[in-house]
Amino acid sequence: MTCREPEWSDDDRAWMLALAYYRDTRCPLCGGDIRDCTAPEDDVVVTVPPPRRCLATDELRLATDQHKDKPGAGALLWRTEVRRR
């Protein structure tokens, strides 16, 4: 008789159930809790703060624009490095 260990422990199954519940309760549009973003208008106050600029994306777009017309530009792999001053 062969005795095998289960592939998933009780903790693993609990974590997966929790993840499934979390994903099921997210709004597909905003990513927030579906109960909050679909509540009647008089129950919640929704605000949109001003956008923030991603400096890494700014630099990445500038670098890729400078190389877009060069041969083989589509094969270049780009990344950003962020350092604090």
Rank of each mutant, 00 (worst) to 15 (best):
Cys37Ser: 14
Asp24Ser: 09
Ala20Met: 11
Cys37Thr: 05
Glu59Val: 05
Val48Met: 00
Ala75Gln: 07
Arg35Gly: 12
Lys68Glu: 12
Ala73Arg: 11
Leu60Tyr: 09
Asp12Leu: 04
Glu5Val: 11
Ala14His: 03
Asp33Lys: 02
Cys37Asn: 05
Cys27Tyr: 07
Gly31Pro: 09
Thr57Ala: 06
Thr47Val: 00
Trp15Pro: 01
Thr25Met: 12
Trp8Ser: 03
Ala18Gln: 12
Arg35Ser: 15
Glu41Phe: 12
Val46Phe: 01
Arg61Trp: 05
Leu55Tyr: 10
Asp43Pro: 01
Thr47Ala: 00
Cys30Asp: 12
Met16Gly: 11
Asp42Lys: 04
Ala20Val: 09
Gln66Phe: 03
Pro49Met: 00
Cys54Asp: 15
Thr47Gly: 00
Asp42Ser: 01
Glu7Gln: 15
Pro71Leu: 02
Pro50Glu: 04
Pro71Ser: 00
Asp11Arg: 14
Pro28Met: 08
Ala20Lys: 15
Asp58Asn: 14
Tyr22Met: 08
Cys37Val: 14
Tyr22Val: 02
Gly74Asn: 11
Arg13Gln: 07
Asp24Trp: 07
Ala39Ser: 07
Thr64His: 09
Arg4Leu: 06
Asp33Leu: 03
Pro40Ser: 00
Ala14Pro: 03
Thr25Leu: 03
Cys54Ala: 12
Asp36Ala: 10
Val48Gly: 00
Arg53Asn: 06
Asp42Val: 01
Ala56Tyr: 14
Pro28Ala: 12
Cys30Ser: 06
Asp42Trp: 00
Arg13Ser: 07
Cys37Gln: 06
Ala63His: 05
Pro50Thr: 01
Leu17Ile: 05
Pro51Asn: 08
Lys68Ile: 13
Val44Asn: 10
Asp33Ala: 04
Gly32His: 05
Gly72Thr: 07
Arg4Ile: 03
Trp8Ala: 04
Cys54Pro: 04
Arg61Thr: 10
Arg26Asn: 04
Glu59Met: 08
Glu41Gly: 14
Pro40Leu: 02
Glu5Ala: 13
Thr64Glu: 14
Asp11Gly: 14
Pro40Asn: 02
Val44Glu: 03
Thr57Phe: 12
Thr25Cys: 12
Arg61Asp: 05
Leu62Thr: 01
Val46Leu: 08
Asp43Ala: 07
Leu62Arg: 10
Thr25Glu: 06
Glu41Gln: 09
Trp8Thr: 02
Asp11Gln: 11
Leu77Gly: 11
Thr38Pro: 06
Asp58Tyr: 11
Leu17Cys: 04
Val44Phe: 00
Glu59Ala: 15
Asp10Ser: 15
Cys27Asp: 05
Leu60Ile: 15
Ala14Arg: 02
Val46Asn: 05
Leu77Glu: 10
Gly74Ala: 10
Val44Tyr: 01
Ser9His: 06
Asp58Ala: 06
Ala20Asp: 14
Tyr21Ala: 03
Asp33Thr: 01
Gly72Gln: 11
Asp10Tyr: 08
Gly74Gln: 08
Lys70Leu: 13
Thr25Val: 10
Tyr21Asn: 14
Leu62Ser: 03
Asp11Val: 07
Ala39Tyr: 03
Pro28Thr: 07
Tyr21Phe: 08
Asp36Ser: 05
Trp15Glu: 06
Thr25Tyr: 00
Tyr22Thr: 04
Cys37Phe: 02
Gln66Arg: 05
Ala73Gly: 07
Leu60Lys: 12
Pro71Ile: 04
Asp65Pro: 04
Ala75Thr: 00
Cys54Leu: 10
Val46Asp: 03
Asp43Asn: 05
Lys70Phe: 15
Gly74Ser: 09
Glu7Pro: 04
Arg13Gly: 02
Ala73Asn: 11
Ala14Gly: 01
Asp36Ile: 14
Asp36Gln: 14
Asp24Glu: 11
Thr47Asn: 01
